[in-house]
Amino acid sequence: MELILQNLISPVTLAFALGMIARWVRSDLEIPSAVYQGLSIYLLFAIGLKGGVSLSVTPVRELIAPAALTLVLGVLTPLSAFFFLRSLGKLGRTDAAATAAHYGSVSVVTFIAAIEAVKISGMASNGYLPALLAVLEVPGIIVGLLLARESKGAGMKAAIHDVITGKSIFLMVGGLVIGALCGPEKIAGVAPFFIAPFKGVLCIFLLELGMVAAGRIQDLKAAGFRLILLGCFLPLFHGSIATVCAVAVGMNPGGAAVFGAMVGSASYIAAPAAVRLALPKASPGIYLTLSLGVTFPFNLALGIPLFLYLAKNAPKFLS
């Protein structure tokens, strides 16, 4: 309980709530789209750089098990999401596959929020997590699109090209490489710009995200009770399994909690763009509403503290 409260009362979560309130009271607050896009470029590049620096000091063999686990979960989560969305959610094949692609992929902002929550709780994390983030982003989308069995070869190829060259993967992997090549000393020169103001920038970004999510919440009625429940269940289910597995392969408790939040999260930047092109018949009213209107706020408020709790206590159960 204390973990949950501690997580809720943070500038990051409260900025998100403020954004939602702005929409509800019809404030004229609007983050210009150029500013929002600039901020997202900053955030993605900064995460990449930070991850790259820690990669440069991590021995390769320490990475093998977590990376393999990430790949396996990246393929399994869309399959399980698809199964639940079809059976419990009663969605058609195309809508279920489109939504599964979102749950298979990852939300970068959930990841960052989890990192911050772990920092606040004082637990140790793993520096190489941003590299896993990049690994996790792609396979889920591809599996999701394959599940639809709809896209012809060309549409599929275009969608995969879109995901891999899209700005989120491109900037993050680019940052990782630059960070890894330069190492801690050379990155120290740009740290005042990329590391120190990071959290403040994140707050503004979440303000905007809160406004967009509040707009989506109005679509919840159309989505129906079953889907809303699934939007809470899927992150819990995927995230808990991922947290326990991460502890089992030897990640730090803090790192395992972040990993759980990553795997439990649903993408709402890379996946929607790819899905819109490859599966035009799937309804954005379902997949965007679930990932942004239900799962993201759920993880922010409840998921992350739960994964933290689980990661702290999992070693006891495992041993």
Binding site: S33, Q37, V212, G215, D219, Y268, I269, A273
Partner: peptide, 11 residues
């Protein structure tokens, strides 16, 4: 078709 999802799908 309702309000567009703004930047998430591009303007």
């Amino acid at each position: 078709r309702g309000v567009r999802a703004r930047d998430w799908e591009g303007p």
